[in-house]
């Protein structure tokens, strides 16, 4: 995932890459200080996303730079005494004073990647937002025009507006969040994809969580008598009730370790995937992946509901099928035959 390849630094140019990054930091630091006048070391470090010790090191290098010629009055002046004591201990409260660096008082233009990443992110914000926010985003986009370095590469990364979050879902999230805070029950009509039907239940909401591009309500479900996650775009209707929750309130769960809780009632299923269906291994938590010589792969997957599996295999048709257990294969062929009969 990371673009800063660790292999490159292991190859021996860690110092070189370090120097380049240090120059980049200094080109941002000097104008940052210039724009603000007096800034404490710790404050500047936080704003630049580095440790105070690193910032001090950067300043010591800056102290050695300046106009060509090398006379002391041509060098950039940094008051280092205010930033550390004699033993070298860093004074986070020390105020940074840099002078003689007027020619660096403007930051560098945005690189094509920085400009693209920013513009695409802003457009994504715009597509899911209320009209007044969209108007603000438009103003920012107009102001950022011309902020990037010149060149034909301004659009290396681009994105069309996502059809992701509608204002409807944003409003729903706000209502459910409010119900969680007030600790009142919510009645849900919730769509269950594996069964392709609406379910009806009363839940004790705990809060909103986000993972993998979707928003979820974490709640205690009185029908399942267990905590459940409800994906917001599958909530067909939500009525906030006056009745207080009956279960112990809990913080919404942390989804950073993945959201697929292990259930005891799962079956280990082995699938065969043709190349076109290999993406499955990237999207679902699989137990094992075994590449086969013909470009196909075999994956082991824990399945809690056979209907979910059948739906997945239909989506992938005809590029995925069950090889074990043998009792699992029939569902797909039957479902495909049923669907096919609609066209005959």
């Amino acid at each position: 995932m990371s673009a800063a390849s660790p292999g490159a630094s292991a190859a021996g140019n860690a110092g070189a890459a370090g120097a380049k990054e240090q120059v980049a930091r200094l080109l941002t630091l000097v104008p940052y200080l210039h724009a603000r006048g007096t800034v404490r070391l710790a404050e500047a470090a936080a704003a630049l996303g580095i440790r105070p010790e690193v910032l001090l090191k950067d300043l010591k290098v800056l102290f050695m730079c300046g106009l060509p010629g090398g006379y002391p009055d041509e060098l950039i002046d940094v008051d280092l005494d205010a930033l550390q004591d004699e033993s070298g201990k860093v004074h986070g409260d020390g105020v940074i004073r840099v002078s003689n660096a007027d020619y660096l008082d403007r930051p560098l233009r945005l690189t094509p990647v920085e400009a693209s990443a920013m513009i695409v992110a802003l457009r994504a914000l715009r597509s899911g937002s209320a009209p007044d926010t969209a108007e603000i985003v438009d103003r920012v986009l107009a102001k950022l025009e011309g902020a990037a370095a010149a060149g034909p590469t301004a659009g290396v990364v681009d994105a069309a507006p996502e059809e992701s979050e509608s204002s409807e879902l944003t409003a729903l999230a706000a209502r459910l969040d409010d119900a969680s805070r007030r600790q009142v029950q919510v009645e849900l009509d919730y769509y269950v994809p594996a069964r392709d039907e609406l379910s009806h239940r009363v839940v004790d909401p705990r809060g909103m969580v986000r993972e993998g591009g979707h928003a979820y309500l974490d709640a205690w479900c009185h029908s399942a008598e267990a905590p459940r996650l409800f994906r917001l775009d599958r909530v067909a209707a939500a009525r906030v009730l006056d009745t207080p929750v009956t279960t112990e309130p809990a913080e919404p769960r942390d989804l950073s370790d993945g959201m697929f809780a292990r259930s005891d009632e799962t079956t280990l299923v082995t699938l065969r995937l043709a190349p076109a269906a290999r993406w499955v291994t990237e999207y679902y938590p699989v137990e094992d992946v075994r590449p086969l010589p013909d470009g196909e792969v075999e994956v082991d997957l824990l399945v809690a509901d056979e209907r979910w599996l059948t739906k997945l295999l239909l989506r992938l048709a005809p590029n995925a099928w069950v090889t074990a257990p043998t009792t699992y294969g029939g569902g797909l062929a039957r479902a495909a035959q049923d669907a096919l009969s609609l066209y005959q």
């Binding site: 673009a3 941002t28 704003a47 560098l108 990443a117 992110a121 914000l125």
Partner: peptide, 27 residues
């Protein structure tokens, strides 16, 4: 709005690029 934009990318490299852009604007 610019501050919010730093939290849109779910990709390390592009999230970092957005943050760098914001640092330059702050500077």
């Amino acid at each position: 709005v610019v501050g919010l934009a730093t939290r849109v990318w779910d990709h390390q490299r592009l999230a970092r690029a957005t943050t760098e852009a914001v640092r330059k604007l702050s500077a």
